[in-house]
């Protein structure tokens, strides 16, 4: 049942890519995701381990395809739905 996040020691990943003069965030929405998460953690909507757990539950194919903060946003919306804050449809804007 080891999860896709548990990659320590796995072989097959490529060379490490460094981005010169990397900004803290590559788009405004990334900063918003981090701030949104911090606000919800502070409010006790969920805790940090529940948040990590929600990231780890992303199906492996999608986990590996998603960018770092895409994973965060997906975990946030998963938890908001599971905690009954909003339905998946409401969160998706349907």
């Amino acid at each position: 049942m080891s999860r896709i996040n548990d990659v320590g020691g796995m072989v097959g990943f490529p060379a490490i890519v460094e981005e010169p003069d990397e900004p803290a965030f590559h788009a405004d929405w990334e900063a918003h995701v981090v701030a949104l998460n911090a606000a919800l953690l502070r409010r006790g909507v969920y805790d940090l381990d529940e948040f990590r757990d929600a990231i780890e539950r992303i199906p492996p194919r999608e986990y590996l395809a998603a960018s770092y903060y895409e994973k965060w946003f997906r975990a946030i919306t998963t938890l908001l739905a599971e905690k009954g804050i909003a339905t998946p449809e409401e969160l998706a804007g349907a």
Partner: peptide
Amino acid sequence: AARVRHVEALLEQRGWLAPGEVDERI
């Protein structure tokens, strides 16, 4: 970006986020 904005607005509307809270955190 649009989906993040939407979730933020929804949470503000329902009182889970104070107005301006996300900007303060940023």
